[in-house]
Nucleic acid binder design. Structure first.
Lengths: 147, 147
DNA sequence: CCAGTCCGTTCCGAAAAGGAACTATCTTGG
DNA sequence: CCAAGATAGTTCCTTTTCGGAACGGACTGG
């Protein structure tokens, strides 16, 4: 099976990955969440090939994760901003950060800390069940395949 | 920059993606969480090339996400199981499922529902702050770059 | 006019993915 | 004994994608 057929799968993991499962895509989105909006800036920060960056931005726009918006005319130039759909990816990124901090050690100190905008306090992300308020772990939650 | 240099970055997103940001890797892990442990089974379910599957399993084992365990001798055969580090990825997968369910519509009905093992009730995943118990969103949490 | 900025595109060699066949090691059934 | 089946890969070859660097177009400021 080819990678780009994933979007037609019924499994939500497959559908999700068809959008963000590409190499570099989540790195691009990380920069978007950090407020980077311009092509040049992303390219410089990520070290990604211009070619690939242009391709990823195009795909993310086509998928409705980013939107391209003119920030000047003459010459016409666009910047990239997260749509609501894109912003909704925040928990995925945060979960990934949480995992990496705990299980993929860095050489030096880690580069990012999550803090509350309001209080400035450090935030500790945990995935919980909205109904019971309890943490979700592999042990007490299971996935049912719908018939 | 090359993709495999990501693991040396100080950003946790980059480090995380150096492990699971590869094409197919999260699909393989999805199957692991669903209890699939054998090469043949994964290959059949995923439709992935045998070549690529072998490669991903090798890398995941090398990264300590999966562990290879003999389930019979004569002939010696192994199966793949999640390590603790691997199981810790559950929130990432769940966050992805949540996003895809909400924003990447399937054609037919969705194939997976998360339920509590205890009560059988449907689980609604939300990322919260362990300290305050409040939901984490892009709007009220921000990432600080550590100097 | 020239340098600088910004957002791409083009070109080419290298790496990775897709597809199918092949190997190896047993077990089971006839 | 032989053929067929199960399991876990490997090998070979073609197609796709990536990495690196140069090039192009549309301006601005000096």
């Amino acid at each position: 099976m080819k990678w780009d057929k994933l979007k037609d799968e019924s499994c939500p993991v497959a559908r999700g990955l068809s959008v963000i499962g590409d190499r570099w895509t989540l790195m691009v989105l990380r920069d978007c969440f950090l407020g980077v909006r311009r092509f040049e800036a992303m390219q410089a920060r990520l070290g990604i090939t211009r070619h690939v960056l242009a391709d990823r931005l195009r795909k993310l726009e086509a998928d409705g994760v980013l939107r391209r918006e003119a920030y000047q005319e003459r010459p016409l130039r666009h910047e990239y901003r997260l749509t609501e759909k894109g912003k909704a990816l925040y928990p995925v990124l945060v979960a990934l950060i949480g995992w990496a901090e705990a299980h993929v050690p860095a050489e030096g100190p880690t580069a990012i800390t999550l803090v509350s905008r309001e209080t400035g306090e450090r935030v500790e992300p945990v995935l919980t069940d909205a109904r019971t308020g309890r943490a979700i772990s592999h042990r007490d939650v299971t996935a049912l395949r719908n018939a």
